[in-house]
């Protein structure tokens, strides 16, 4: 068993267990914690796929920010009596998700993919691509983040 295979198996196990735990847990706080586990596992997959920078960005942005934001909203919208976490369509939803997965897996496994060994790229080269070829989308993305930030403040602000 090669080390890559072992790491892959552990990451896949972690991602699936925490993903399933996140969507089936009855407690909203456990759901958010399981989500953190799944996001960290995805960051591990990025590093396994030789995309270290993306792995770190994923850890910082998702693990550090998104999960904290979800915890904030869970804290601020706490309801008094028993809140419903699932709607009555759970079994239909499970069947739909399983059907999608079966169809998708069939499509993936019957398609011939190129089997070339990937090569390691340097982060410096990635940064040069980002700031040379992709500089306009980068600026637009920063503007989008600013607009989303202002919009979020205005929506969430208490009306006087």
């Amino acid at each position: 068993m090669s080390p890559a295979l072992l790491v892959f198996a552990l990451l896949a196990l972690a991602a699936l267990v925490s993903g399933l735990g996140s969507v089936t847990s009855r407690s909203v706080v456990y759901s958010a914690l399981f989500l953190l586990g799944a996001l960290v596992a995805v960051a591990g997959f990025f590093i396994l796929l030789l995309a270290e920078f993306l792995g770190l960005a994923q850890l910082l942005l998702y693990g550090g920010t998104v999960v904290v934001l979800i915890f904030f909203v869970l804290m601020l919208t706490r309801q008094e009596e028993g809140e419903r976490v699932d709607n009555p369509w759970r079994w239909g939803a499970a069947v739909a998700a399983l059907l999608f997965f079966a169809l998708y897996t069939f499509a993936v496994l019957t398609t011939p993919w190129p089997a070339e060994d990937p090569e390691l790229i340097s982060i410096g080269e990635l940064g040069r691509t980002l700031f040379a070829d992709w500089v306009l989308p980068f600026e637009i993305a920063s503007m989008l983040l600013l607009v989303a930030l202002i919009g979020a403040i205005i929506i969430a602000r208490a009306r006087d």
């Binding site: 991602a15 996140s22 969507v23 997959f45 976490v85 699932d86 709607n87 998700a97 997965f101």
Partner: peptide
């Protein structure tokens, strides 16, 4: 693995009632 995670998320979107 990506498809499995997507299906899990799809289930949550369809079956959950709590907005978060």
């Amino acid at each position: 693995v990506g498809g499995a995670l997507f299906s899990v998320g799809l289930y949550a979107v369809l079956a959950r009632a709590h907005a978060a």
